[in-house]
Design a protein around this nucleic acid. Structure first.
Lengths: 149, 149
DNA sequence: CTAAATTAAATTGTGTGCAATTTAATTATA
DNA sequence: TATAATTAAATTGCACACAATTTAATTTAG
């Protein structure tokens, strides 16, 4: 009788990653609803609050998202007035995204969210550190694949 | 000058979880394409290979998915011939999902996938163990919320 | 210098994910 | 026991994700 244990859900590492990611994003929802952002829009604004100005390609590299996801999302954020979209004059292939004043003001409403979410977590500080380190190790492994380095 | 560091992407724990989950699911794609399954269909089949028969509600509790996601997905798996869907005779509110012979045969084509994916990971065994433990701790915390226990 | 190759966004189409509502079946209660 | 409450799926509507293709701008090569 062949052994199929490798196919059991409980033996997967990807499944809890996938489930956990979605469960935590759900925890954000009540807080993000108050400022009318989805989770993906929220992390997009995070990058913009930090960078002020960025093109779609670079934004996509940071968020691990492509234009198929970002183009409609950025149009929505533009519709809400939080960002502006304009083509680069030096290279019109590039779309430059910038934060508006209204988008900058939104940061004030968002600043308390990380602490609120932190309260919901029962992870020990060292567990959070371990988790963070391991996740970025996996992400970087994938980033570097096929590169010269 | 107020401190907004908590809003930096690099200070989030949810973001690498979200990004990592999607990146690893992408690694599955070439293998899952060969057996014509999406990742969500794949983990659904995993549960069915183990349980043989299950109703939608229980399946949803295991996978952290609701009927809004599962109903169309299960119809697709039924269309591919891997599962059968039928109402319970004892309680017609319940839909019972069972694996077909074809679905059982698919397990043979899938059994090598976990090892193939494992090859792509550069995690040390103890890191994988830590990651697994922390993720399930977070998942269980959420599962138990608001329960008597 | 110009055609080919490359690049960046946008578009298209499919498949989730999930909140909210609806439908149908069952259970609890007045 | 008729009705109200509850439960399980299905449905609806919106927002991602992402592969594949298209469009337009820029670079590269011959």
């Amino acid at each position: 009788m062949k052994n199929y244990d490798a196919l059991k859900l409980e033996n997967q590492i990807c499944f809890p990653l996938y489930a956990c990611s979605r469960e935590i994003i759900k925890q954000y929802k009540p807080f993000l609803d108050k400022i009318d952002l989805t989770y993906t829009q929220y992390i997009t604004m995070m990058v913009l609050w930090e960078k002020k100005s960025i093109n779609v390609k670079t934004l996509g590299q940071i968020l691990y998202l492509d234009s198929g996801t970002l183009t409609p999302l950025l149009k929505k954020l533009e519709g809400k007035g939080y960002i502006a979209r304009q083509r680069s004059t030096s290279d019109e292939r590039n779309l430059i995204v910038t934060v508006t004043e209204s988008g900058e003001a939104l940061k004030e409403s968002a600043v308390s969210i990380p602490a609120e979410i932190g309260k919901c977590s029962n992870l020990e500080p060292e567990e959070a550190v371990q988790l963070y380190r391991i996740l970025y190790k996996m992400l970087n492994d994938r980033h570097l694949e096929g590169e010269i380095l």
